[in-house]
């Protein structure tokens, strides 16, 4: 064997070792990645005037003793990055129309004053902790004129920066497939990621429902690092 050939094969061997190691360390190839929750339109009724109470209990405004009308629903879930790590210190905002299909937005409520449920908070916020868990108490969403699919609007923010705006739907609700927004999702996977089961809570005296909805947020284009610990992954 002559010397130049030997050098060549060494180079190729090293190159292949390098490529081989790249193969095994490339993130996402075998890691348990999650699909991102698809974005959906914000719609016209993000509150134009915030309620005095913006906590995560939409059934009770401040210390009122009259709860909102509707099927009491506990929505819980986790806010995650695509690699499954929890997103902490992120704010989840939800808003939805009341049981009489009136939004907390003057463009909607001003013309439906008599119908509006004055005890429904209409909007709530929750800031995640280290586990990324969130929780809301609200009503089961109802259809809205022109929107046969009952839905809850969701907006995720980190500080003032919006990370995701989307909507949550009720799995199996027959109006879903007639709903333009629901139908605008790309495929079955995206639809699935926007659905939650609303199941009766066992032994609940007030027939409460529970819905579990995990939200997976990807990296948004305009940010540098919202999650430095995992910034090497995406």
């Amino acid at each position: 064997m002559n010397a130049p050939f030997s050098a060549l094969s060494r180079r190729h061997f090293l190159k292949n070792v390098a490529l081989g190691s790249a193969f095994f360390t490339t993130p996402g190839l075998f890691a348990e990645q999650l699909f991102e929750t698809p974005a959906l339109t914000e719609g016209p009724f993000y509150p134009d005037k915030m309620p005095l109470d913006t906590d995560n209990d939409l059934l009770i405004i401040n210390d009122s003793i009259t709860p909102a009308i509707g099927e009491v629903t506990n929505i819980t879930g986790r806010l995650l990055a695509a690699d499954g790590s929890p997103l902490k210190d992120a704010t989840i905002e939800i808003w939805q129309c009341d049981a009489n299909a009136v939004y907390l937005h003057t463009a909607d409520s001003n013309r439906k004053k008599k119908k509006q449920d004055q005890n429904f908070q209409g909007f709530g916020r929750f800031t995640t902790g280290s586990t990324g868990e969130y929780r809301f108490r609200t009503i089961k969403p109802v259809p809205y004129p022109g929107r046969p699919a009952p839905h809850i609007h969701i907006k995720i923010k980190k500080g003032d920066r919006p990370l995701l705006t989307t909507q949550l739907f009720i799995r199996g609700y027959e109006g879903n497939t007639k709903d333009g927004i629901y139908n605008s999702t790309r495929d079955l996977i995206d639809r699935e990621l926007l659905l939650a089961d609303f199941k009766p809570v066992k032994d609940s005296k007030i027939a409460e429902l529970a819905a579990r909805f995990d939200i997976v947020v990807g990296r948004t284009p305009d940010e540098n690092s919202f999650d430095p610990e995992h910034s090497n992954r995406r």
């Binding site: 339109t41 719609g43 016209p44 009724f45 134009d48 939004y103 937005h105 003057t106 463009a107 909607d108 001003n110 013309r111 809205y144 004129p145 022109g146 929107r147 046969p148 007639k178 709903d179 333009g180 927004i181 629901y182 139908n183 605008s184």
Partner: peptide, 26 residues
Amino acid sequence: MRHRGPGGPGGPDGEPGRFGPPPDGP
């Protein structure tokens, strides 16, 4: 039209009011 589509049944694409506030809006 936005809710039904101009020429037949189509999916609605949003909530009424999308085109701006009603006259007594903000």
